[in-house]
Design a protein around this nucleic acid. Structure first.
Lengths: 134, 134
DNA sequence: ATGGTTATTGCACCTGGTTGCAATTATACT
DNA sequence: AGTATAATTGCAACCAGGTGCAATAACCAT
Protein backbone atom coordinates (compact mmCIF):
# COMPACT_ATOMS: atom_id res chain seq x y z
CA UNK A 1 0.00 0.00 0.00
CA UNK A 2 1.39 3.34 -1.00
CA UNK A 3 2.37 6.05 1.43
CA UNK A 4 -0.16 8.45 -0.09
CA UNK A 5 -3.02 6.07 0.55
CA UNK A 6 -1.92 5.54 4.14
CA UNK A 7 -1.82 9.31 4.61
CA UNK A 8 -5.35 9.72 3.36
CA UNK A 9 -6.66 6.94 5.55
CA UNK A 10 -5.36 8.70 8.63
CA UNK A 11 -7.15 11.90 7.66
CA UNK A 12 -3.87 13.57 6.75
CA UNK A 13 -3.56 15.84 3.76
CA UNK A 14 -1.64 15.17 0.60
CA UNK A 15 0.05 18.48 -0.12
CA UNK A 16 2.37 19.11 -3.07
CA UNK A 17 5.31 19.30 -0.64
CA UNK A 18 4.49 15.92 0.84
CA UNK A 19 3.93 14.36 -2.57
CA UNK A 20 7.37 15.54 -3.65
CA UNK A 21 9.11 14.26 -0.52
CA UNK A 22 7.42 10.86 -0.82
CA UNK A 23 8.43 10.70 -4.51
CA UNK A 24 12.04 11.46 -3.74
CA UNK A 25 12.29 8.81 -1.07
CA UNK A 26 10.75 6.22 -3.37
CA UNK A 27 12.84 7.11 -6.40
CA UNK A 28 16.14 6.57 -4.69
CA UNK A 29 16.61 3.04 -3.51
CA UNK A 30 19.64 3.78 -1.39
CA UNK A 31 19.35 5.58 1.88
CA UNK A 32 19.32 9.35 1.68
CA UNK A 33 20.63 11.73 4.27
CA UNK A 34 18.41 14.53 5.56
CA UNK A 35 20.69 16.97 3.78
CA UNK A 36 20.29 15.17 0.46
CA UNK A 37 16.53 15.08 0.82
CA UNK A 38 16.39 18.77 1.67
CA UNK A 39 18.48 19.87 -1.29
CA UNK A 40 16.63 17.54 -3.64
CA UNK A 41 13.26 18.87 -2.50
CA UNK A 42 14.37 22.48 -2.68
CA UNK A 43 15.86 22.11 -6.15
CA UNK A 44 12.52 20.86 -7.46
CA UNK A 45 10.34 23.16 -5.38
CA UNK A 46 12.25 26.19 -4.14
CA UNK A 47 11.02 27.76 -0.93
CA UNK A 48 10.01 24.59 0.86
CA UNK A 49 11.10 25.03 4.42
CA UNK A 50 13.38 22.52 6.13
CA UNK A 51 10.95 22.25 9.02
CA UNK A 52 8.27 21.06 6.60
CA UNK A 53 10.66 18.41 5.35
CA UNK A 54 11.70 17.26 8.81
CA UNK A 55 8.05 17.16 9.90
CA UNK A 56 7.05 15.15 6.85
CA UNK A 57 9.86 12.68 7.39
CA UNK A 58 8.86 12.31 11.02
CA UNK A 59 5.27 11.70 10.01
CA UNK A 60 6.28 9.10 7.41
CA UNK A 61 8.37 7.41 10.05
CA UNK A 62 5.41 7.27 12.43
CA UNK A 63 3.28 5.76 9.67
CA UNK A 64 6.02 3.17 9.16
CA UNK A 65 6.46 4.30 5.56
CA UNK A 66 10.02 5.33 6.16
CA UNK A 67 12.84 4.22 8.42
CA UNK A 68 15.21 6.64 10.04
CA UNK A 69 18.60 5.66 11.35
CA UNK A 70 21.68 7.52 12.39
CA UNK A 71 25.18 7.27 11.00
CA UNK A 72 27.98 9.50 12.23
CA UNK A 73 25.57 11.92 13.93
CA UNK A 74 23.58 12.35 10.72
CA UNK A 75 20.15 10.95 10.00
CA UNK A 76 19.48 8.73 7.01
CA UNK A 77 16.10 7.67 5.65
CA UNK A 78 14.86 4.91 3.37
CA UNK A 79 11.41 3.68 2.58
CA UNK A 80 10.11 0.67 4.42
CA UNK A 81 8.81 -1.29 1.43
CA UNK A 82 12.18 -2.66 0.44
CA UNK A 83 12.06 -5.03 3.43
CA UNK A 84 13.83 -4.84 6.73
CA UNK A 85 17.54 -5.21 7.06
CA UNK A 86 20.44 -3.84 9.04
CA UNK A 87 23.38 -1.83 7.79
CA UNK A 88 26.98 -2.61 8.43
CA UNK A 89 29.22 0.36 7.78
CA UNK A 90 33.00 0.43 7.79
CA UNK A 91 34.28 3.18 10.03
CA UNK A 92 37.43 3.54 7.94
CA UNK A 93 36.35 3.44 4.28
CA UNK A 94 32.66 4.17 4.80
CA UNK A 95 31.52 1.18 2.74
CA UNK A 96 27.98 0.13 3.57
CA UNK A 97 26.52 -3.36 3.24
CA UNK A 98 22.93 -4.37 3.90
CA UNK A 99 22.73 -7.29 6.22
CA UNK A 100 20.19 -9.94 7.00
CA UNK A 101 17.37 -8.95 9.29
CA UNK A 102 17.66 -12.13 11.36
CA UNK A 103 21.21 -11.63 12.52
CA UNK A 104 20.12 -10.42 15.95
CA UNK A 105 17.82 -13.36 16.70
CA UNK A 106 20.22 -14.98 19.18
CA UNK A 107 20.58 -11.69 21.03
CA UNK A 108 16.81 -11.20 21.11
CA UNK A 109 16.39 -14.66 22.55
CA UNK A 110 19.07 -14.15 25.18
CA UNK A 111 17.70 -10.76 26.29
CA UNK A 112 14.22 -12.16 26.51
CA UNK A 113 15.30 -15.15 28.56
CA UNK A 114 17.66 -13.26 30.87
CA UNK A 115 15.82 -10.00 31.40
CA UNK A 116 12.32 -10.48 29.96
CA UNK A 117 13.27 -7.64 27.63
CA UNK A 118 11.88 -7.31 24.12
CA UNK A 119 14.51 -5.54 22.06
CA UNK A 120 13.83 -3.38 18.98
CA UNK A 121 16.36 -4.48 16.42
CA UNK A 122 15.15 -2.69 13.30
CA UNK A 123 17.46 -1.02 10.84
CA UNK A 124 20.37 -1.14 13.21
CA UNK A 125 23.57 0.57 12.11
CA UNK A 126 26.53 -1.65 12.90
CA UNK A 127 29.90 0.08 12.67
CA UNK A 128 33.25 -1.66 12.52
CA UNK A 129 35.94 -2.54 10.03
CA UNK A 130 35.33 -4.30 6.72
CA UNK A 131 37.60 -7.02 5.36
CA UNK A 132 39.56 -4.55 3.21
CA UNK A 133 40.32 -2.22 6.11
CA UNK A 134 41.19 -4.70 8.86
CA UNK B 1 46.11 3.86 35.40
CA UNK B 2 44.44 7.11 36.16
CA UNK B 3 43.13 9.49 33.53
CA UNK B 4 45.40 12.26 34.78
CA UNK B 5 48.51 10.14 34.31
CA UNK B 6 47.41 9.18 30.80
CA UNK B 7 46.93 12.87 30.01
CA UNK B 8 50.41 13.76 31.15
CA UNK B 9 51.97 10.93 29.20
CA UNK B 10 50.48 12.28 26.00
CA UNK B 11 51.94 15.72 26.68
CA UNK B 12 48.51 17.12 27.45
CA UNK B 13 48.01 19.62 30.25
CA UNK B 14 46.20 19.02 33.48
CA UNK B 15 44.19 22.18 33.97
CA UNK B 16 41.84 22.80 36.92
CA UNK B 17 38.89 22.48 34.54
CA UNK B 18 40.03 19.10 33.33
CA UNK B 19 40.77 17.88 36.83
CA UNK B 20 37.24 18.78 37.89
CA UNK B 21 35.62 17.08 34.90
CA UNK B 22 37.65 13.92 35.46
CA UNK B 23 36.68 13.95 39.16
CA UNK B 24 33.00 14.27 38.41
CA UNK B 25 32.99 11.40 35.97
CA UNK B 26 34.79 9.19 38.44
CA UNK B 27 32.65 10.12 41.42
CA UNK B 28 29.41 9.11 39.83
CA UNK B 29 29.29 5.45 38.94
CA UNK B 30 26.17 5.70 36.84
CA UNK B 31 26.23 7.23 33.41
CA UNK B 32 25.88 10.99 33.30
CA UNK B 33 24.32 13.01 30.53
CA UNK B 34 26.22 15.90 28.98
CA UNK B 35 23.74 18.25 30.62
CA UNK B 36 24.37 16.76 34.07
CA UNK B 37 28.11 17.02 33.65
CA UNK B 38 27.86 20.62 32.50
CA UNK B 39 25.70 21.75 35.41
CA UNK B 40 27.81 19.81 37.90
CA UNK B 41 31.01 21.37 36.60
CA UNK B 42 29.55 24.86 36.50
CA UNK B 43 28.15 24.64 40.01
CA UNK B 44 31.62 23.84 41.33
CA UNK B 45 33.52 26.18 39.04
CA UNK B 46 31.29 28.87 37.59
CA UNK B 47 32.29 30.28 34.23
CA UNK B 48 33.61 27.10 32.70
CA UNK B 49 32.42 27.14 29.13
CA UNK B 50 30.42 24.28 27.67
CA UNK B 51 32.84 24.00 24.77
CA UNK B 52 35.66 23.31 27.22
CA UNK B 53 33.57 20.54 28.76
CA UNK B 54 32.63 18.99 25.44
CA UNK B 55 36.23 19.17 24.27
CA UNK B 56 37.49 17.56 27.46
CA UNK B 57 34.93 14.76 27.18
CA UNK B 58 35.93 14.20 23.57
CA UNK B 59 39.57 14.05 24.58
CA UNK B 60 38.86 11.59 27.39
CA UNK B 61 36.93 9.47 24.94
CA UNK B 62 39.86 9.42 22.54
CA UNK B 63 42.16 8.38 25.38
CA UNK B 64 39.69 5.58 26.16
CA UNK B 65 39.17 6.95 29.66
CA UNK B 66 35.51 7.57 29.03
CA UNK B 67 32.79 5.98 26.92
CA UNK B 68 30.19 8.01 25.14
CA UNK B 69 26.89 6.60 23.95
CA UNK B 70 23.65 8.07 22.77
CA UNK B 71 20.18 7.64 24.23
CA UNK B 72 17.20 9.51 22.83
CA UNK B 73 19.38 11.97 20.92
CA UNK B 74 21.32 12.84 24.08
CA UNK B 75 24.86 11.81 24.89
CA UNK B 76 25.75 9.93 28.04
CA UNK B 77 29.23 9.31 29.42
CA UNK B 78 30.75 6.88 31.89
CA UNK B 79 34.32 6.08 32.73
CA UNK B 80 35.88 3.07 31.17
CA UNK B 81 37.36 1.52 34.29
CA UNK B 82 34.13 -0.02 35.46
CA UNK B 83 34.38 -2.66 32.72
CA UNK B 84 32.54 -2.96 29.46
CA UNK B 85 28.88 -3.71 29.21
CA UNK B 86 25.87 -2.77 27.13
CA UNK B 87 22.77 -0.92 28.19
CA UNK B 88 19.23 -2.06 27.65
CA UNK B 89 16.75 0.76 28.03
CA UNK B 90 12.97 0.52 28.03
CA UNK B 91 11.47 2.94 25.55
CA UNK B 92 8.30 3.24 27.64
CA UNK B 93 9.38 3.56 31.28
CA UNK B 94 13.01 4.54 30.68
CA UNK B 95 14.38 1.85 32.99
CA UNK B 96 17.99 1.01 32.25
CA UNK B 97 19.75 -2.29 32.89
CA UNK B 98 23.40 -3.03 32.30
CA UNK B 99 23.87 -6.13 30.26
CA UNK B 100 26.61 -8.60 29.72
CA UNK B 101 29.34 -7.60 27.34
CA UNK B 102 29.32 -10.97 25.56
CA UNK B 103 25.73 -10.88 24.38
CA UNK B 104 26.73 -9.91 20.84
CA UNK B 105 29.25 -12.69 20.37
CA UNK B 106 27.00 -14.76 18.06
CA UNK B 107 26.40 -11.68 15.92
CA UNK B 108 30.10 -10.88 15.78
CA UNK B 109 30.82 -14.41 14.68
CA UNK B 110 28.11 -14.37 12.01
CA UNK B 111 29.22 -11.01 10.59
CA UNK B 112 32.80 -12.12 10.49
CA UNK B 113 31.98 -15.37 8.72
CA UNK B 114 29.47 -13.91 6.24
CA UNK B 115 31.04 -10.57 5.39
CA UNK B 116 34.55 -10.62 6.88
CA UNK B 117 33.38 -7.67 8.94
CA UNK B 118 34.72 -6.91 12.40
CA UNK B 119 31.93 -5.17 14.30
CA UNK B 120 32.42 -2.67 17.16
CA UNK B 121 29.98 -3.75 19.82
CA UNK B 122 31.03 -1.58 22.74
CA UNK B 123 28.60 0.13 25.04
CA UNK B 124 25.70 -0.47 22.71
CA UNK B 125 22.38 1.06 23.68
CA UNK B 126 19.61 -1.47 23.09
CA UNK B 127 16.12 -0.02 23.18
CA UNK B 128 12.92 -2.01 23.51
CA UNK B 129 10.29 -2.88 26.09
CA UNK B 130 11.03 -4.26 29.54
CA UNK B 131 9.00 -7.04 31.14
CA UNK B 132 6.83 -4.55 33.06
CA UNK B 133 5.90 -2.56 29.97
CA UNK B 134 5.23 -5.33 27.46
C1' DA C 1 -18.09 26.03 -7.55
C1' DT C 2 -18.20 28.10 -2.80
C1' DG C 3 -17.27 28.34 1.87
C1' DG C 4 -15.96 26.44 6.49
C1' DT C 5 -12.99 23.65 9.09
C1' DT C 6 -8.75 22.22 10.46
C1' DA C 7 -4.26 20.27 8.97
C1' DT C 8 -0.17 22.11 7.14
C1' DT C 9 3.16 25.53 5.91
C1' DG C 10 6.78 29.04 6.50
C1' DC C 11 8.79 31.81 9.65
C1' DA C 12 11.55 33.00 13.43
C1' DC C 13 13.51 31.31 17.20
C1' DC C 14 15.33 27.57 20.16
C1' DT C 15 18.30 23.50 21.40
C1' DG C 16 22.48 20.61 22.11
C1' DG C 17 26.62 20.19 20.37
C1' DT C 18 30.81 21.96 17.49
C1' DT C 19 34.41 25.13 15.67
C1' DG C 20 37.74 29.18 14.62
C1' DC C 21 40.23 32.36 16.88
C1' DA C 22 42.40 35.65 20.01
C1' DA C 23 43.57 35.79 24.89
C1' DT C 24 45.25 33.06 28.62
C1' DT C 25 47.98 29.74 31.19
C1' DA C 26 50.37 25.14 32.22
C1' DT C 27 54.57 23.40 31.56
C1' DA C 28 59.66 23.02 30.28
C1' DC C 29 63.91 25.45 30.23
C1' DT C 30 67.30 28.71 31.99
C1' DA D 1 61.86 32.75 39.99
C1' DG D 2 61.36 34.41 35.13
C1' DT D 3 60.53 33.53 30.41
C1' DA D 4 59.27 31.17 26.07
C1' DT D 5 56.09 28.29 23.82
C1' DA D 6 52.50 25.69 22.68
C1' DA D 7 48.19 23.74 24.67
C1' DT D 8 43.94 25.27 26.42
C1' DT D 9 40.30 28.37 27.46
C1' DG D 10 36.23 31.40 26.71
C1' DC D 11 33.83 33.63 23.39
C1' DA D 12 30.90 34.20 19.60
C1' DA D 13 29.27 32.32 15.76
C1' DC D 14 27.82 28.20 13.60
C1' DC D 15 25.37 23.65 12.56
C1' DA D 16 21.54 20.17 12.13
C1' DG D 17 17.39 19.42 13.74
C1' DG D 18 13.10 20.75 16.27
C1' DT D 19 9.05 23.86 17.95
C1' DG D 20 5.22 27.52 18.66
C1' DC D 21 2.43 30.24 16.13
C1' DA D 22 -0.08 33.04 12.75
C1' DA D 23 -1.10 32.68 7.84
C1' DT D 24 -2.40 29.55 4.27
C1' DA D 25 -4.52 25.85 1.77
C1' DA D 26 -6.44 20.90 1.31
C1' DC D 27 -10.44 18.65 1.87
C1' DC D 28 -15.40 17.95 2.86
C1' DA D 29 -20.21 19.28 2.73
C1' DT D 30 -23.35 22.05 0.57
Amino acid sequence: MSCSVILKEKGLRLTPQRRLIVDIIHQDDAHLTAEEIISSVQSKMPGVNKSTIYRTLEMLEELNCVFKSEVDDKFIYHHAEEGHHHHIICRKCGKSIDCDEHIFHPVETALSRKYGFHADFKHVIITGLCSDCL
